[in-house]
Design a binder for these strands. Structure first.
Length: 830
DNA sequence: AGCACGCCGACT
DNA sequence: GTCGGCGTGCTC
């Protein structure tokens, strides 16, 4: 094939060539699944034309290698400067995602400034072997060199790691604790001590099948009979067909017998896919209860838009107003139009609750997608959606990529929750993407929350979203009474009395006497808050993170909450060597043990990251609460998240200020949401709720607004503050993060990036109104041994910001171990 | 990421 | 002159 280089006459000839071999449609765009993860154009050989389809994996030549790519569609703009290669093979029989997702993937790649192939990789369930695995193995020469000790002592250690077994580079790095570097491997390969083998491995996640045995007409009349065969034939006569696994329960040797019988023509065997069921326990079906007038109005209002193209709603329902029931009715209405429903929930723990409700109403039509599933389970759920076998999917943020070909309704529950923001290589916000996906697929999107984000309320006021309120709690339950206690007046007290006001203590006592449940919220896990040397006042810092350690009594150690590193609690002060370390403040661990001491008869439990680490532990706590085998629950902010605790009447907020004092412009919003949410946990049953909110800042507007359940007042003040300081939603932000293992080098590269940025901004008037803050050292200057710098870009329009960042990144050459990541619409500026 | 290519200094 | 070290840049 001639290269389409050069002038017009040549161009025509190319077209003639295309016409001649009838292959104009035979050019396809493929996203390669190895760096640089970009889209490339390939030619499809004639014999593969019928097989190729968007969403299928293909094997393509790439440089001197063969790699896996994903078909995006026919090429729109064939590249004119390079020769186009032909693809080698089509891997899949069925597409692994529908073609309609391609524009969505493109949008995500553009908006978040991330390579298309990498976007698709994050979207797909794991185990699809998208990248060829490269493994390294010690050669005989390497073995010899190692045993003869002719190698450099520095290489000795690395090579002996490799001597144990061949493995991948990543595993190698882990096994050698990061001491083996890429350059070492390349050097060893040159010396022929090490062999690199690149292979395209089999999928780890494969469909599972079960064998179905069918009766054959006249089969029973066949020659070979035996009592066991008779039994099998009789069972098949009765049921028509049976799974082989069920047959085995009746006839232990069924597997062999059936094979023989199939040969003799007595039965017929077919295969049918089975799905590993992530929902272990059976769920009793329920039927739709009657809606309140308010709920019914919400369903009618939103339901009117179903099937009529894109529309977006904010469903603002106070805690306990029955949003889930509205979702269920809307889902039902959507299914009646034969359109699928996608439900996003902020975290795994809440998925089971939502899934239960949906399963009870819709049975087997529900798929689950989240990271708690095994790779095989996730693959199965994904495939059931892609093959139209389910019409509802419930999942965490990555489920926004669920492979629905058509979509009627997208629900984002607890839309204000920051867990929707993914903080990996691709930093996306699942709520924002849900809105975009709804627009692209002409679906209705519902953002539900008791405390809608400032962003969403702003969009309502802009006319972008429609707002629907649920103001009443179900069964006319009242919102809890909130009482504020000033912690300042307890400053002179010693020990726990500093943190527990007499009013809170009395309320706990009274609630326990009434046999009601108490929730105590403290946004700090561990035993004590701060660790300070008694001699010199130096705080205990993590060796890898420049972050204060926290004392954990259960393991009797100081622990870093950022990298997990811990030191024995006998460790001395890092500065003066002083042995006496003061433990100031209080954490959930201490609060729990103090509560147990003060109320010995009460059953006290704790819910924080430490106690729910074990799989199923959270469910157990929730169950125990429901069965009233817990009297006092102590917990961190996870207790505020949407769980339904029907028997809790008293909520104590130990210190409402912990999230207020963070150096982040969203601190006020987070505090208000947290307080409103945690207060909402009280009084969801028949008894009224009571909340005691302790704070050092009783006059702060976030606290006052929370106290009066006054969302409007909070919004009005917060939006003024954002406007005055030109923060989102009035401006758009992109944050560039510069990370590296070396302090000076990271600082130097950050400075260079800043200079590049200034130069580009000066060159083009389009960037004139973009503000660059930094580069500055990040507030968390080091995490897990990585030094962190940041450059924050702020502008009125997202377009110029995007273009500036793209120009900046393409002009910036960085050393291999310094990383630059892009965070569009950053949520955490630390 | 991997691989080729091209440029330097150290050897046959 | 050739080998092999590493920095640079491309992959349809």
């Amino acid at each position: 094939m001639p290269e389409a280089r050069g002038g017009a006459p040549f161009f025509e000839e190319v077209n003639v060539t295309f016409d001649h071999c009838n292959s104009v449609q035979a050019l396809i765009d493929v996203a390669v699944m190895v760096p640089p993860f970009q889209r490339f154009t390939y030619r499809v050989p004639e014999e593969m034309l019928t097989e190729v389809a968007p969403g299928k994996r293909v094997l393509v030549p790439f440089g001197s290698r063969r790699v896996i790519g994903l078909v995006l569609g026919t090429a729109e703009t064939p590249p004119s400067t390079v020769g186009i290669k032909a693809l080698i093979d089509v891997i899949d029989d069925q597409p692994i995602f529908p073609a309609v997702l391609v524009p969505f993937f493109n949008w995500v790649a553009d908006y978040y400034i991330h390579p298309l192939g990498a976007v698709i990789q994050t979207a797909l369930p794991g185990g699809l072997a998208l990248a060829g695995q490269t493994s390294y193995r010690l050669t005989e020469a390497g073995q010899a060199a190692l045993s003869e000790r002719t190698v450099d002592p520095a290489d000795q250690a690395g090579l002996s790691v490799l001597a144990k077994s061949p493995c991948s580079y990543q595993r190698l790095r882990r096994l050698s604790k990061g001491r083996i570097r890429r350059a070492d491997l390349e050097r060893w390969i040159k010396k022929e001590w090490v062999l690199r083998r690149s292979e395209l491995p089999a999928d780890r996640a494969r469909p599972q099948y079960e064998r179905i045995v069918h009766a054959v007409p006249g089969g029973a009349a066949s020659i070979r009979r035996s009592p066991r065969r008779e039994r099998i034939l009789a069972l098949l006569q009765q049921y028509g067909f049976m799974a082989l696994s069920d047959l085995k329960k009746h006839v232990a040797t069924a597997a062999d017998l059936v094979r023989a019988m199939s040969r003799d023509g007595q039965v017929q065997v077919t295969q049918r896919p089975i799905y590993r069921d992530p929902l272990g326990e059976p769920i009793l079906p329920d039927s739709a209860p009657a809606l309140s007038d308010e709920q019914a109005r919400a369903v009618t209002a939103i339901g009117a838009s179903l099937g009529g193209g894109y529309d977006a709603f904010v469903l603002a329902g106070v805690t306990g107003s029955g949003k889930t029931e509205v979702y269920l009715h809307l889902a039902d209405a959507t299914l009646q139009r034969e359109l699928p429903v996608l439900v996003l929930v902020p975290e795994i723990a809440l998925i089971s609750q939502m899934a239960r409700a949906f399963r009870a109403r819709f049975g087997e039509r529900v798929a689950l997608l989240h990271s708690g599933l095994s790779q095989g389970e996730r693959f199965d759920q994904w495939r059931r959606i892609a093959q139209h076998q389910v019409s509802i999917a419930i999942g965490a943020r990555s489920a926004v990529f669920a492979p629905f070909e058509r979509l009627g309704l997208l629900i984002v529950d607890e839309e204000h929750d920051d867990s929707y923001k993914q903080e990996g290589a691709l930093r996306y916000h699942a709520r924002d993407m849900a809105v975009v996906r709804a627009r692209l697929q002409e679906a209705v999107v519902v953002l539900g929350s008791a405390t809608p984000s400032l962003q969403s309320i702003y969009n309502v006021n802009n006319g972008k979203f429609k707002r629907i309120d649920l103001l009443a709690r179900v069964d006319h339950r009242l919102l809890p009474r909130i009482q504020v206690q000033d912690l300042g007046r307890l400053r002179e007290e010693r020990g726990l009395r500093r943190f527990l006001s007499p009013e809170l203590m009395a309320a706990i006592q009274a609630a326990l006497a009434r046999r009601e449940q108490v929730l105590l919220f403290l946004n700090r896990r561990g035993f004590a808050g701060a660790l300070v040397c008694a001699a010199c006042g130096q705080p205990m810092l993590c060796e890898h993170c420049d972050i204060s350690l926290t004392y954990h009594r259960r393991i009797n150690a100081y622990q870093c909450h950022y990298c997990g590193h811990s030191r024995a609690a006998t460790a001395a002060c890092g500065r003066c060597g002083g042995a006496r370390i003061l433990r100031l403040g209080v954490g959930t661990e201490q609060l729990q043990s103090e509560m147990q001491r003060i109320f010995p008869a009460a059953r006290v439990a704790r819910m924080d990251r430490d106690t729910i680490r074990r799989k199923g532990a959270l469910i157990e706590i929730l169950k125990a609460l429901r069965h009233r085998t817990i009297d006092i629950l102590v917990g961190t902010q996870m207790v505020a998240k949407g769980h339904d605790y029907p028997h809790i009447t008293l909520v104590g907020v130990i210190c409402a200020d912990l999230s207020l004092n963070l150096p982040d412009f969203r601190a006020g919003e987070r505090t208000f949401q947290l307080l409103a949410q945690v207060a909402g946990r009280a009084g969801r049953g028949e008894s009224p709720g009571h909340v005691i909110l302790q704070t050092y800042n009783p006059e702060h507007f976030s606290i006052i607004a929370a106290r009066h359940h006054d969302h409007v007042a909070f919004y009005r003040q917060e939006i003024e503050f954002r406007k005055a300081l030109q923060y989102p939603p009035f401006t758009r932000m992109v944050q560039l993060r510069i990370n590296g293992p070396d302090k000076a080098q990271t600082a130097e590269q950050a400075r260079r990036l800043g200079e590049h940025c200034t130069r580009i901004r000066m060159q083009n008037p389009e960037y004139g109104r973009i503000e660059a803050l930094g580069p500055i050292e990040a507030p968390l200057a080091r995490i897990s041994g990585q030094y962190r710098w940041q450059l924050l870009l702020k502008g009125a329009q997202v377009g110029p910001l995007h273009r500036l960042v793209r120009a900046l990144l393409s002009a910036f050459n960085r050393p291999a171990d310094v990383q630059v990541t892009v965070d569009v619409d950053p949520l955490f500026l630390m």
